[in-house]
């Protein structure tokens, strides 16, 4: 019995791969995910450090909380692209699963295309917000800061990062659409 449990655990814990329809781009998204995964580990360490500094040494930092929020936000935003590349976004497939292979392919094409168009709109809107977060009204480059005592430019950086990820989502959904059209991978 023990071996069965070991096997199920091991197969469950395999690191996921990008689905074939995500293309080379999806593989790259999967690989770069490592960076943001490390950011999550770092966040846990930093929060622990903050608690120790405050509780034991009575010296809370002014940078840990903001940095942890920033690292987590990067992981959250990237996680959306990552889950798209490995096709792990939560979906209701009760109806979809009953479709024929041909209809599934049509659905896949339409869904990817719709997500592509929506992402395009969002990328455009994110660009508008980056214009406000990265330049002053006078046209000088100045990243929006958090306004705290430490005042890091995290909000400006995060808005730029969001724009980049939305653009990459457009790319990812374009690749999905094309590959479903060409029947690449399994429909």
């Amino acid at each position: 019995m023990t071996d069965v449990i070991d096997e199920t655990l091991a197969s469950h814990n395999q690191t996921p791969e990008a689905v074939p329809e995500a293309g080379l781009f999806g593989k790259a998204v999967n690989a770069i995910g490592l960076l943001f995964a490390i950011g999550i580990l770092a966040s846990a360490g930093l929060l622990f450090y903050e608690v120790v500094m405050r509780y034991v040494f009575n010296a809370p930092t002014r940078w840990v909380h903001e940095t942890v929020v920033f690292l987590s936000a990067l992981a959250f935003v990237y996680g959306g692209l990552y889950a798209a590349a490995i096709d792990k976004h939560i979906r209701v497939v009760i109806f979809y699963d009953r479709l024929s292979a041909g209809m599934k392919r049509v659905f896949n094409i339409l869904i990817s295309l719709t997500c592509l168009i929506a992402s395009l709109f969002f990328a455009w809107a994110a660009w508008l917000s980056v214009k406000r977060a990265a330049w002053t009204p006078q046209g000088d480059f100045r990243l929006e800061t958090s306004g705290s005592a430490w005042n890091p430019p995290y909000p400006g950086l995060l808005k730029i990062f969001l724009l980049i990820i939305l653009v990459l989502l457009v790319v990812q959904f374009t690749i999905f659409t094309i590959n479903y059209l060409r029947r690449k991978g399994q429909a």
Binding site: N13, P16, G33, A37, I40, A75, G80, Y82, H89, I90
Partner: peptide, 17 residues
């Protein structure tokens, strides 16, 4: 730790989005 962190990235991607 890395394996756990990558799984976390995937799961938070789902939940947060």
């Amino acid at each position: 730790m890395i394996g756990a962190a990558k799984q976390t990235l995937r799961t938070v991607g789902m939940i947060v989005w």
